[in-house]
């Protein structure tokens, strides 16, 4: 591991000698405080899922009944909700739920809509009618707006949005009709398994002690950026469109790096990610630590 700033001799490791140093300090700190998924809650394909003497269990996703016993059909973690026993795969694509806060990348601009990649099975759509146009005015979308769609979002842009509707064919519609949603800039993206993001009341986390804002997208895409200045209030008391951020200072960047490293460490440890674990992982990491991919 090396510190940023002073160039040091590159460290070459012959395989098998402590490659997960970065994660170790985080693991130590978190396991003393939180209950990680217990070892025996993980099953592999063909494993018998213990049903704990329950008389009538309900067979959920990822399981199959073989000779009266419940058998896992995927590798993953056992989830029990009352009588329902299901196995949630370790690595799967994001499946959207109504109201989820997501972070996605615009891949295409199509007629009256944007196509957004969410790491889900299908790409999501964001209709022109479900965004706030610049200036915040509520009006009908004209043909002119349609021609100027790239001035709102263009290909490659990262956006935060909310799941507006789920359709029969499995496709997802998004909306950004709030000032907290929209284009993301001045920070970095970290992608973690979507399973690790717990659905919570707040996915926009402002951590003033560390000076970072974290948007925990339910689809596993997490946006880390320096604290945004508080929104200025307009003449009518309503918050105005946020002004462009000033470029991050070195200290702010260091904090963002450290938070991104904490996220990667949590993902490497397969630890649930929410504000409390994030703060602990951040504090357990030494500043300036570099990850091995």
């Amino acid at each position: 591991m090396q510190l940023a700033g002073q160039p040091q001799a590159p460290n070459i490791i012959i395989r098998g000698s402590g490659s997960s140093l970065a994660a170790a300090s985080v693991q130590e700190r978190l396991e003393s405080q939180y209950e990680a998924f217990s070892e025996d809650s993980f099953v592999c394909v063909g494993d018998i899922v213990p049903t704990d003497m329950q008389e009538g269990f309900l067979r959920g996703h990822g399981t199959q009944v073989v000779d009266g016993q419940l058998m896992a059909t995927v590798c993953g973690r056992v989830e029990r909700i009352n009588k329902l026993v299901s196995v949630r795969p370790l690595r799967n694509r994001y499946s959207a739920e109504l109201g989820d806060v997501v972070v996605g990348r615009v891949t295409d601009v199509a007629g009256k809509r944007w196509i957004v990649d969410l790491n889900a099975r299908q790409e999501a759509t964001l209709q022109l009618s479900s965004v706030n146009l610049p200036g915040g005015v509520q009006r009908r979308r004209t043909a002119e707006d349609e021609l100027n769609m790239r001035s709102v979002f263009e290909e490659g842009d990262l956006i935060s949005a909310e799941v507006q509707a789920l359709h029969q064919d499995g496709s997802v519609s998004l909306h950004t009709r709030s000032l907290k949603y929209g284009k993301l800039a001045g920070g970095q993206l970290v992608t973690v398994p979507a399973n690790l993001i717990k659905r919570q009341k707040h996915h926009f986390n402002t951590l003033p002690d560390m000076g970072v804002d974290v948007i925990l997208g339910c689809n596993g895409m997490v946006w880390v950026a320096p604290n945004a200045p508080p929104p200025a209030l307009g003449a009518d008391g309503e918050p105005e469109q946020a002004p462009p951020r000033p470029p991050a200072t070195r200290e702010q960047r260091a904090a963002v790096c450290r938070m991104a490293g904490a996220l990667r460490a949590l993902a490497a440890l397969y630890f649930p990610i929410f504000q409390a674990t994030l703060v602990d992982a951040y504090q357990a990491r030494k500043p300036g630590l570099v990850d091995a991919a």
Binding site: A4, P7, P10, I13, I14, S19, T249, R253, C257, V290
Partner: peptide
Amino acid sequence: QGFDAGLRSDGRGCHDWRPVEVA
């Protein structure tokens, strides 16, 4: 901006390698 400030997104400086592993 990270390169200008000498601090990249993964915490490295401009002249640092990622960990190199040889087997």
